[in-house]
Write a protein that binds this DNA or RNA. Structure first.
Lengths: 158, 158
DNA sequence: TAGGATTTTTGACATTCATCAAAAAATAAA
DNA sequence: TTTATTTTTTGATGAATGTCAAAAATCCTA
């Protein structure tokens, strides 16, 4: 149980857990040229972690912050490793989970690089309409890779 | 052994193999609004496949084309599945390979969405300088998400 | 519910980049 | 080598988006 605006992971710190988000909302962001860039959101039933840091156990380059009071379950890297050694099936589940996450990221990548700002916003509306009600526009703008002003203008135009 | 400009995978066709590229160069691209968008390149010692199609066995949305005559090794989905069932260790290797590929894609994603065209080109020069000599500029431009003219101007400016 | 803080919108202007067209350069073929 | 083809560069112009500043709207909280 964590409360709004708390941090799950902070830049520079090693991320030792994968979390399951039962209830609430999170964002992952990092600092680029003095600006906070939100690069993902997570909602109910998502698994979250600072993937790079968790996987390599290097210091995280990103921050994970609570957007709402949330209920989270955590499993540590060590405990997960134990489970993987003990149960072949978990290794397989994880491999398949990675496949799915990879495909999703590929999709986002294409979307990010080759669609216009307006198209990206419309895709977001279609795929996850609830984001709009739960997340400040500024965060959404940086998630879409545009300025808040531009997002505001896109919204007024639609 | 395949020769220049041949296709390994074509849009609409199911991709049933993962390939190991021993020698040569490939690109993955798809058609968007009548334009070919190159979204990755592969060179010696890379594993390649149309990931989404291979994983889900849905028809591919992308094409894989030879940029040079190349030597490739293939393993079919069925044979790989057999190996995964037989050897726990291969499941683990695959899971770890996916981790690495995921992290790499995450990196590219950030790069694509939040860096300027010039920065993206400079990163490319730094990370894979040999691309420039082996791949036409037009492909590189679309890989970077800019027009060929803009890339040409960036090059003259540096 | 009134005042303060935060978030969103609007305006003016500068910059980046795409597009279309054509010239120049490089590469391949005869 | 000469010609044809492909690739790269250059020029002119317009559209999309960023930035800075301020106004308007919304939301907290006392």
């Amino acid at each position: 149980m964590f409360s709004k605006n708390e941090y799950l992971v902070t830049e520079g710190q090693r991320c030792r857990h994968i979390y399951f988000l039962e209830q609430g909302a999170l964002r992952g962001f990092y600092n680029l040229d003095g600006k906070e860039i939100t690069h993902w959101f997570a909602f109910e039933k998502d698994f979250v972690t600072s993937f790079h840091s968790f996987s390599t156990q290097q210091p995280a380059v990103e921050n994970i912050q609570l957007l709402e009071g949330s209920i989270l379950w955590a499993i540590s890297k060590d405990r997960l490793t134990g489970l993987l050694n003990q149960y072949h099936d978990i290794e397989r589940l994880l491999r398949i989970a990675y496949e799915k996450y990879y495909i999703r990221l590929e999709d986002r990548y294409v979307n990010a690089q080759f669609k216009t700002a307006t198209e990206r916003y419309q895709t977001l509306l279609l795929q996850t309409p609830h984001i709009i009600e739960r997340v400040p526009l500024g965060y959404i703008a940086s998630y879409l890779g545009i300025s808040q002003e531009t997002l505001s203008r896109i919204r007024s135009r639609i």
